[in-house]
Design a protein around this nucleic acid. Sequence first.
RNA 1: GGUCCGGUCGUCUAGCGGUUAGGAUGCCGCCCUUUCACGGCGGAGGUCGCGGGUUCGAAUCCCGUCCGGACUACCA
Length: 513
Amino acid sequence: MSVRVRYAPSPTGSPHVGNIRTALFCHLFARRHQGVMMLRIEDTDRSRYVPGCEEEIEESIAWIHIDWQEGPDKGGPHAPYRQSERAEKGIYAQWADQLLAAGHAYKAFDTSAELEEMREFQQINKQPIGYFGGKWRDASPDEVEAAESAGMRPVIRLKMPRGKMLVVQDAIRGRVEFRSDDVDDPVLIKADGMPTYHFAAMVDDHLMETTHIIRGEEWISSAPKHVWLFEAFGWEPPIFVHVPVIKGKDGSKLSKRHGDTRCLDFRSAGYLPEALANFIALIGWSPGGDREIMTIREMEESFSLEGLQPSPGVFDSDKLKWMNGHYVRQIDPSKLLSVVREFWSHPETQSYWKDRTPVEGEADPTQVRTGLDALCHAPEEYALACLKLEQERVTTLADFGPACLFFLVDEPEMDTKAVDKWFGQAHVPALLEAFIKLCQAAGDSASPETCEAWVREYAASAGLEKLGPVVHPLRVALTGKTAGPGLFELMSVLGPGRMLRRLRRAQGLLITA
RNA sequence: GGUCCGGUCGUCUAGCGGUUAGGAUGCCGCCCUUUCACGGCGGAGGUCGCGGGUUCGAAUCCCGUCCGGACUACCA
């Protein structure tokens, strides 16, 4: 039997990296076994529906190169793939009726106040909390009829068996057992006629011939309800794969408090989908051995359920940064400009960096904006030259802004410490003067080799043994900073004209004793 | 309170009865070098949560214990 898996998110908010990782695992598993991945929208809760969310889900998973063969946007043999539409077709009601007829489900007319009271009582008396033996479980047909004719809207609950062992076959943890007496009767159909997750997901998984339910670990405790549903229907249950949760640095479940968690925010922040996918897959999964850097194709080839970890993992953003830097360096230099332009021209990227408050140790939003704006408006050749020189020095696409900024503004911000260190030294005025002359004498351009020759010859003529006393002040004069690309390359990219203006400006900053 | 899951360097992990417990990241140092970064090399960092067993031998198997987490809605 060929593998069929589904990614079944509910459109109640932006998908975060945890959700996306589950989708990734589905994708990898499906691909590994030449199976099918379905996208199913679990929109049975009307009150929590967030418009636009479904599109964001699709955009998010498509962004990291996950594809699916069946879904609301693609159709498929089991359409529709939106549960609200399936509910309209009466799919769930039909199966609920069957359960009702078979005595596996019953109508319950409790009011929410009554249920609340019940839980309160259980809480106080330290009893297990849940709907275990509510009065409707074994109500007589007469009682039900009376309630119905009184106009009360019932829910349909699943009648869990008593005195039975319910076993969940989990691909990661093996056999997980639950005593059925510990499991309460879940609502299958709500009073508004919509199915709950418990019911809709399982009915659909059967109807859609799902072979493996890959979902978050938080579902493991309701798995016995799902298993029983299959048994009550007489259906063959799929294999469950409960993937561990992702935690933040403090050990609690990953949330906004830990910084960006929304999938598409990583795109806006300048992360590459290849890096995010690679990184995220490694939380909770390993191909075995020492392999870490893998393309999505390579992961597809080596993915297996056995490599899945049962324990939760912490989202280490430092390691993500390292990995992203690796993938940035991997970009074919000829494509660098188009990658950066596509990144920066995205409306979401723009709004992400707009009015963003600076964070210590991270790229300064103002510099990101001005740098990237300038980069995208600069002549292509010049912009590309700047990017190439910074490629191995950045960790995110956004970093190109601050990194390239000095190339693009007429008067780069000067590092005062660097100015203090170098511009008071006795040999510097003559040095600046000499390079001004060289630039004046040069034509429109100067190759890195030419620039190197200038520097070496000047050092020699000034009787300097090392290049440092020439290189460092020049770098500060030209870039305002002490760190950056190789001086000769950077000089060449700036060109004689720009160098000339900067050297003259530097003359005005000389510290005269 | 109940049920279930989990526990190897700070972090992600390899490991499946015999290893000096390996790799990666982060940190430190050295090399490269005109700076930073990249890259290369090296170092610190783990009594494999703890306690008992089983075994000639346990991170690996069993039991207990502690700690952490998830669930406990007419939400998913």
